[in-house]
């Protein structure tokens, strides 16, 4: 369906001033939005949709998994934000919540699960074990953080984090999806 507007798309050489009374003039996007017309790119639309309905992978490793379940239960109720659709199969999920300690024995499985998820996909490292290995970092069998294995988007600190913290982590991920232009502050980690 064609949009019935009198909008001429900006030509090279700058955008002329728009006049709402003269429909033949060019309008900026903001002015269009004031008149109830939304212009967007498909990519942006998809990001907006995904950001509001992320499907996490149901995949618990340790203590944090219990708090992850609590988050979906009636008291904290993650479905208020649209994130309650936990999928058991990685093929249907787009967020992987690494909830717990990754051990050397479990590492290949975590990697496999990540690769089985379809693009685009994101990872939340929940709890200090998934961030850096936590209290178990100097153990012979523990991987020092999920980011040694898979790329991590959001880190949620705590041991285990409270359910509110996980919800905040999901909202941070949403912000990242909706505003990709915002630059992250990254510190070099050796």
């Amino acid at each position: 369906m064609a949009l019935k507007t009198n909008v001429r798309f900006p030509q090279r050489g700058g955008m002329p001033e728009g006049d709402p009374n003269n429909s033949h003039d060019l309008l900026t996007q903001e002015e269009l939005e004031k008149r109830g017309i939304l212009l967007t790119s498909l990519d942006k639309l998809f990001r907006w949709g995904t950001g509001w309905s992320l499907w996490p992978l149901q995949f618990g490793l340790a203590c944090c998994a219990i708090e992850m379940i609590c988050t979906t239960q009636s008291r904290f109720d993650m479905s208020r934000f649209g994130y309650e659709v936990f999928r058991n199969s990685p093929r249907q999920a787009d967020v992987m919540i690494v909830a717990g300690t990754i051990t050397e024995k479990m590492r290949p499985a975590v990697e496999l699960l990540y690769h089985q998820m379809p693009e685009p996909k994101w990872v939340i490292a929940m709890g200090s074990c998934a961030i850096s290995g936590g209290p178990f970092v100097d153990s012979y069998s523990v991987v020092a953080g999920a980011d040694k294995v898979v790329p991590v988007d959001v880190y949620v600190p705590g041991c285990p984090p409270r359910p509110e913290a996980l919800i905040d982590g999901m909202l941070q991920l949403k912000a990242k999806l909706l505003h990709p232009e915002r630059q992250q502050v990254v510190r070099d980690v050796k």
Binding site: G100, T103, K105, M106, A109, F136, S139, S141, V142
Partner: peptide, 23 residues
């Protein structure tokens, strides 16, 4: 089993008694 084996018993040997409690 062993996919969550964190080596807790070994870690407790290198911690003091009080530090071992949270584990």
């Amino acid at each position: 089993i062993g996919y969550l084996h964190r080596g807790m018993e070994k870690l407790l040997e290198s911690r003091t008694y009080v530090q071992g409690m949270p584990y």
